[in-house]
Amino acid sequence: MNLFDLTGKTALITGGTHGLGMAIANGLASAGAELVITDITQDKLDTAIGQYGEKGYKATPYLFDVTDETAAEKAVERIVEKHGKIDILVNNAGIIMRQMAVDMKVSDFRKVIDVDLVGPFVMSKLVARDMIRRKSGKIINMCSMMSELGRDNVSAYAAAKGGLKMLTRNLATEWARHNIQVNGIGPGYFATSQTEPIRVDGHPFNEFIINRTPEGRWGQPDELAGTAIYLASEASNFVNGQVVYVDGGILATIGKPAGE
C-alpha cells in the first residue's frame, strides 16, 4: 500500500471547490496529501475549505483565474514559497456552454477553449518549472468523454477536451525525461449537483445515460478517487501520456446489452 501513500505531498487542484474536483481532492487528502484549492469565487473557496476542515483535511485556498497567466504565475510562486513544492497538479477547472455550433458566438467558443484548454497549459507550464528542477511531479488533466465522442450542443467543449487529450500526450513526451508523469482522467456521467435536474426518472437524458452505460447507472463522484490516487502516486511512475476513462464501460461498447 505504500505505493499509493501521498503523505508529505502537496496537491494543487484547480476548481476544487465542488463536484468532481472536490471528490478528487477528498481522495488525494484521504491518501495523505495536503491540499491547495483554487477558484475564481471567494464564497466557493470559503465554503469548500470549511468542508475539507470538517473531514480533518489540511487545505489552503487561493483565489485566481487559471487563464490569467500573470495572476497564475504569482499564485504559483506564493504556493511554492509557502508549501515548499507542488508534487501533484490536477487541472480540473473548466466550463461548458451548451449551444448548437451554428448559433454559437465565436467569443463564447474562445472562452471555453481558454478555460478548458489554455488554462491547463498555463498551470502545467508554471508548475512544471519547479517539478523539472526537482526531477519529480505528477500532472493530472481532467479530460472527458468528449475527448473521444461527439455530441450535439458541445462543440467548443469537445474541441477543448480533445485538445487537452493531445496536450496531455505532448507534455508527457516533453517532460518524461524529468521524471514527470502527465496523464488524464476521462469521467463518464456522474451524479453531481449539476446533473441532478436531468437525473430524474422519465427524463430523456437520464434514460439515455442509463441505457448507454453497461453498468446501467450514473457514477458516484467518490468513484473517481481511486484513479486520481493511482495517477498521483508512485504506483503510476511508468504510466505516462494516458487518459484513464472512468465511465462504467461506455467507451467499450456500442450500447448497453439487452436484458439478461
Rank of each mutant, 00 (worst) to 15 (best):
L3E: 10
K9E: 11
T10E: 06
A11I: 04
L12I: 15
T17E: 01
H18S: 01
G19A: 11
L20K: 12
G21I: 04
M22H: 02
A23L: 01
S30R: 10
G32F: 06
D39T: 14
I40E: 06
K44F: 12
L45V: 02
Y52L: 12
E54I: 05
Y57A: 15
A59P: 08
P61R: 00
Y62A: 01
L63C: 04
L63P: 01
D65C: 04
E77R: 12
E77C: 04
K82V: 07
G84T: 12
K85W: 10
N91Y: 10
N92V: 06
G94S: 09
M97D: 13
R98D: 08
R98G: 06
M104W: 11
V106T: 13
S107V: 13
D108F: 08
R110G: 00
I113R: 06
D116H: 04
D116N: 14
D116W: 01
V118F: 10
V118L: 08
F121P: 00
V122D: 00
V122I: 08
S124A: 06
K125M: 03
V127A: 03
A128L: 09
D130E: 15
M146C: 01
M146E: 03
R151D: 11
A156C: 12
E174D: 12
E174P: 00
W175L: 15
H178L: 11
N179D: 15
I180K: 11
N183I: 05
I185A: 03
G186M: 08
G188T: 06
Y189N: 09
Y189T: 10
F190A: 03
F190W: 05
A191D: 14
S193G: 02
E196N: 02
D201T: 13
P204A: 00
P204G: 00
F205R: 05
N206Q: 03
F208L: 12
F208V: 02
I209G: 05
I209A: 05
T213S: 08
T213Y: 12
W218S: 03
G219F: 01
G219K: 00
Q220P: 00
P221W: 07
G226N: 11
A228Q: 05
E234R: 07
A235L: 06
S236L: 06
V244C: 02
V244L: 14
G248N: 10
G249K: 12
I250Q: 15
L251G: 14
L251S: 12
A252P: 03
T253M: 09
I254N: 13
G255E: 08
A258D: 08
A258W: 13
G259E: 13
G259D: 13
